[in-house]
Design a protein around this nucleic acid. Structure first.
Lengths: 243, 243
DNA sequence: CGCTAGTATTTGTCTAGTTGTATAGTTCAT
DNA sequence: ATGAACTATACAACTAGACAAATACTAGCG
């Protein structure tokens, strides 16, 4: 009691180790399928007992970041996914290119009146109706991001059922007659995870989140999708090409 | 626990325990870096509750006499070491001059791209690669400081292996053709120990730390090392010569 | 060259001990 | 009553060491 510098270490040591290693992976210090230093070496590096390192690694393994092979070592399972933001942003393509398996989980599909923001982004009359697609993006069966896609309902009948069957936005749009689309603009900001977001993304509340907002347009320049995506900050690295 | 009857001021039990243990250390019954008996054992010896012993130990820790490591025990802290900062700062020399045995423990050796700060300190092009040497400085086998030495990679091939074998920066540099070097500038600031630093230095989180930042240059004035050192504040006294 | 056997590493599991922290209760002097 | 000193108990976090099980490495042999 009565310690002057009461900067109480509320976070357990193993958690800070886990964060440090996760960051190392995120920074590319250890690449996908790379072997981490042995538990003994890590224990020496962090100045703790091997068991404390093990607890940190266990937490990372639970998140699917690493996996251990007895006698061999601990390997990076999924380096933070590189998610390129280009003219043509395609979730499935982006994930597959990184050697991972993409998937989507539907949270909600509905048709409703567009909000002001949505109407403006899609260049719609106020009061127009839109299809809304809420869901979770997964890579290798681990949640990467939450998203909400908003489509103008007028030109896209049957979009909801198409989304339900296809899961892929690209293919659903193709079913509805939109063969191609490109990203007109993307905005990126940093947020902190709310409780619900944290739950869905399997991160802790208050963890950093990358929010991107983008509008996709068809070749004629008509907006076809207004999308917002919340990426788990430590699981994804957004990369923006020069152009 | 009864007599000394009407005396107005009775010293608390924990204080007398603290005095007793302090005396034991002063008498050399527990030497530097020795582990004291566990709190439970001390509680039994003094016939009190463990918490009373803890209060005594807390008082001693506040005076820098002992330091506790969770799960490991309570250890007798070392007397502060004098560390002179001069034109030629040499760790091994400095420690030996104080009659102690120097040693270094490698935490990490790597080659990577220089950060902005590092590039500027070493007068390198942005994006140049550097050798980085993370480690712990020990005197008489207990930690004095954490350090990070950054060397320009271009002029120093084989520096990492040299460091691995030699441990001494001076000798490793000699192996790489740098016969002599002097300290161009040293900055000193005070910080608080982070969790990891505290673990390595065997101090408590939030304890004071002296951070020195320095650049060493070769006789031609070329920067050869950018070093940062975090000294355990209550274990080291930095001295600066008038010179 | 390929195979095997032995050795060293590395992760998995178990047991035991130690400090850190929280809660609750007792005693006692003022 | 009130608060300080101390006791009692329980659990969390971390250390320490040992051993088993799986893997990687290496030397030697055919």
């Amino acid at each position: 009691m009565s310690d002057a510098p009461s900067a109480v270490s509320r976070t357990p040591v193993w958690k800070s180790i886990s964060i440090s290693l996760t960051d190392d992976i995120a920074q590319g210090r250890y690449g996908t399928a790379d072997k981490l230093p042995s538990e003994a070496q890590l224990a020496a590096r962090f100045g703790v007992n091997r068991h404390t390192v093990r607890r940190a690694l266990a937490a990372m393994a639970e998140q699917g970041l690493v996996h251990a092979r007895r006698g061999a070592g601990v390997f990076v399972a999924a380096a933070p996914t590189d998610y390129p933001i280009r003219k043509r942003v395609r979730f499935h393509q982006n994930i597959q290119q990184g050697g991972q398996t993409p998937a989507k989980q539907i949270l909600m599909l509905e048709t409703r009146i567009a909000s002001l923001i949505e109407a403006e982004a899609l260049a719609l009359e106020p009061g127009s109706s839109v299809h809304v697609y809420d869901g979770i993006s997964l890579a290798n069966n681990h949640p990467i991001a939450l998203f909400q896609s908003v489509f103008p309902a007028k030109n896209l009948p049957g979009m909801l059922t198409a989304l339900e069957q296809r899961q892929s936005v690209t293919e659903a749009l193709k079913d509805c007659g939109v063969a191609d689309y490109t990203r007109a603009e993307t905005r990126i900001t940093a947020k902190l995870a709310t409780a619900t977001q944290a739950l869905h993304l399997r991160i802790s509340e208050g963890a950093p989140i990358l929010r991107t907002t983008g509008v996709n347009i068809d070749p004629r320049g008509q907006p076809v999708e207004f999308g917002r995506t919340w990426f788990a900050g430590d699981r994804v690295t957004l990369t923006v090409d020069g152009r």
